[in-house]
Design a binder for these strands. Structure first.
Length: 287
DNA sequence: CCCACGACCTGTGGGC
DNA sequence: TGCCCACAGGTCGTGG
């Protein structure tokens, strides 16, 4: 469940539990997710205190008091759930309800306060690493990342530079995390539909005057989605189990054959495969 | 450098 | 009912 709004929703859900918390127990139930866990993963985390929980693009970053940062990416199907102890317990002993999905519970973090955060990921496209905090931004995952779409660094000039001379459509380029970091298939489809820009138009041929509005629409869509707690497709968006509800506001994504909702447009949403991924758009008004 | 495409892994939903 | 295929929110590596 992971584009920027979902990851941000997860961050906000985990923050009250993890920020300032000491990890009393950590469990990795397998040797790898998408990549192997780093050497000494459990030992390096056990006893550490999480000072801050941040997000960059689609990465969650838990900065430890040991000079390292736990970096987590949710891939396609990663999800966190918080469990609190139930029933009477002796000091330091906790009892939890049975895990409803133990098969996909790959990592467990237990805080000193007894709260348990479990990472589930059926497809295991997610990954975790421990990076030296001081050198974190130089790591290949972060060094080439484009600006945060909600920051001033993302603007029309920047987009114009990235689109210049490119034959690929804006759909493909906006998914490129080096150009702007955090967008995924849903929100690119939504933003281009609202901006009435064709996903297939050679990006270099888009009039510069349309890029300012596109930037603003991207911010608007992401802002609305964050406010809605993200989009819930097959998973929970928030770590506390709350469902995001932005999916009810999709105007393009997943709406093949349904009417375009743009004002004064009588078009019908179509689906086409572009660069191996589904693109939903309105052929009538997206030019 | 640019671009298309397959690979990674598992689950689910629709059509026959 | 059961089976098979298409498809799923993301990257990454290869090859032209």
């Amino acid at each position: 469940m992971p584009e920027l709004p979902e990851v941000e929703t997860v961050r906000r859900g985990l923050q009250p539990v993890l920020e300032g918390a000491r990890l009393a127990r950590v469990e990795a139930r397998r040797a790898d997710l998408r990549f192997p866990f780093p050497d000494g993963f459990v030992q390096r985390l056990t006893g550490a205190t999480i000072q801050r929980l941040d997000r960059r693009a689609k990465y969650l970053m838990a900065e430890l008091d040991r000079g390292e940062t736990l970096v987590m990416h949710l891939g396609m199907s990663g999800r966190f759930e918080i469990a609190r102890p139930e029933g009477a317990v002796r000091p330091g002993e906790f009892h939890y309800a049975a895990d409803p999905d133990p098969k996909h519970a790959h990592v467990v973090f237990e805080t000193e306060a007894g709260e348990r955060v479990t990472y589930y990921d059926p497809r295991r496209f997610g990954y975790m690493a421990l990076l030296d905090t001081a050198a974190r931004d130089q790591h290949p995952w972060f060094a080439g990342l484009g600006p945060e779409p909600l920051s001033p660094a993302f603007n029309a000039e920047r987009l114009a530079g990235a689109f210049a001379g490119r034959k690929q459509g804006p759909k493909t380029l906006l998914l490129d995390q080096r150009i702007v970091a955090g967008l995924g298939n849903i929100y690119v489809c939504e933003a281009l539909n609202r901006a009435r820009i064709s996903p297939f138009k050679p990006a270099g041929a888009i009039k510069p005057a349309r890029l300012g509005p596109l930037v603003e629409i991207i911010r608007e869509v992401l802002g609305e989605a964050i406010a809605a707690g993200g989009s819930t497709l097959r998973d929970y968006a928030a770590a506390d189990g709350a469902l995001g509800y932005f999916q009810h506001r999709f105007r393009a994504y997943g709406r093949e054959g349904q009417p375009c909702l743009n004002e004064a447009c009588k078009g019908v949403i179509a689906r086409e495969v572009q660069a191996g991924r589904s693109t939903f758009f309105c052929p009538a008004c997206q030019k």
